[in-house]
Design a protein around this nucleic acid. Structure first.
Lengths: 250, 250
DNA sequence: ATTGTGGGATTGTTGAACAATACTTCAATC
DNA sequence: GATTGAAGTATTGTTCAACAATCCCACAAT
């Protein structure tokens, strides 16, 4: 071995603070490391939204805690999280139940959606392209689902579409709130035992709205969306009140 | 005692189901009977919003549970509730802290407020009178507070004013979300150690907006509100970033 | 000044215990 | 026969004590 390894020019350079500041951010504030309660909540959330746990179902603390290998206390923490999201409702000394929305809830949900979605669409002029693109991919997702006749996926795509619309507002808090509202809306379909084809006719509507958005015709898009919400709400409320009458008139 | 008490004509009539249905509803679904965790959460919420617990403060499970005579588990349930409201933030294995919003949060909060408030005002034409009246009484509340030079109450009145604006949308879910957004906004003032007179100049602005509303000139009211939000946000963000620079440039 | 290396403090989670409340069952009454 | 009353049972509300996992801090070593 002739000669020595040339020492690297300027080896052992400590990174300046400047450089460090320029480093990419960690994905999520450096691995938030979810707690057990949050993991259980995540799992239950999926069950509720997908309908594995039907609205009105009571969740027994003891059985669930044994089934999923967590203590009752931990499970209760999870319940609290989901209650705040309105997916579960907590009744003192009676337990927690999967939320079963009423027709009044349906009206309120649509009222909230109007407030969130329509202004977002109307102000879409200065929304970032990334947000508009999200709307487009939700449309594509819906069409793919229809091609496969996967009705549940179509419903999911529809939710994504409307979440993307609210996303045009560009506020993280609005986004999260909208997600909750849509999750609760999904419960409505479970309560009704809605035929999953329910969403089918709305796909074209979504496509048209997105079309308007790409044409930068936000106002027309907003008008179409408004009509969409009106008819969708009416259809739901009608079906819902009929079901409610059937239920308590016996 | 002469004679017998005449039996009441038709005494012991059982109420028909019809009659029972017509009975007034109980105030709140028949005494929801709050749990201990909720009571603790209510208490802590007030502390946080009023600033008795400053942003960034860490809440020790052991000390708080001993101080308020509840178990750690119960206290943790309360923490979960408040974390979902973004008043506390939970860091795994580190504990819970009073949320300390950043300038980015301020921008997001105002973005959310724009989405919630402006459309509500613009659509105020078909808002119920009761909701408009709430706006008026918030204005009055602010003027009363100014008369007494009670600056903290002025801030509260300002919050009530904007909550009332969002209330014009007429959705319970929107109302609750708005309350959360405003509570978090209040934290911003605590972070800044804002002089409480901060709110003073906005009182007249509020009065003007309300004036427009009573005149049924919703569009002008919306424009004024939009300007209000712009200037308020700018003022806050400016002060905020200055403070942040001071803090981490040291 | 930076990097290991403890020890101490705090949180995460569990299991068991008990009180308080709701539900169920069945007998007694009108 | 339907309603009321009074058991007993099941479930939730809450506490307590324990232990593992993790973080924080001070101090020594380089």
């Amino acid at each position: 071995m002739e000669g020595t390894n040339p020492p690297l020019e300027g080896a052992h350079v400590t990174a300046t603070d400047d450089l460090i500041d320029r480093l990419p951010e960690p994905p999520e504030a450096l691995a938030p490391a979810t707690s057990q309660a949050e993991r259980v909540a995540d799992m239950l959330r999926v069950f509720v939204i997908d309908g594995a746990l039907a609205p009105g179902t009571r969740l027994s603390e003891e059985r669930l805690s044994r089934k999923y290998g967590v203590s009752r206390n931990t499970l209760r923490e999870a319940f609290r999280l989901l209650s705040r999201e309105r997916l579960l409702v907590h009744q003192m000394h009676r337990g927690v139940f999967v939320n079963r929305p009423t027709s009044e809830d349906v009206r309120d949900l649509f009222s909230a959606r109007r407030t969130l979605e329509i202004p977002a669409v109307r102000g879409a002029r200065d929304a970032c392209d990334r947000a508009v693109a999200a709307v487009g991919s939700a449309v594509a997702e819906g069409q793919a689902a229809r091609a496969q006749a996967d009705w549940w996926a179509m419903g999911t795509a529809n939710m994504h579409f409307h979440r993307a619309l609210a996303g045009l507002a560009g506020s993280a808090r609005i986004n999260e709130f909208m997600s909750q509202v849509l999750a609760e809306t999904r419960l409505v379909f479970h309560v009704m035992n809605a035929p999953e084809q329910f969403h089918a006719p709305y796909l074209d509507w979504n496509r048209r709205i997105h079309q308007r958005l790409t044409e930068r015709d936000a106002d027309t898009a907003a008008v179409e969306l408004s009509r969409y919400l009106d008819t969708s709400e009416e259809q739901l409320v009608t079906a819902f009140t009929a079901m409610e009458r059937r239920a308590d008139g016996r």
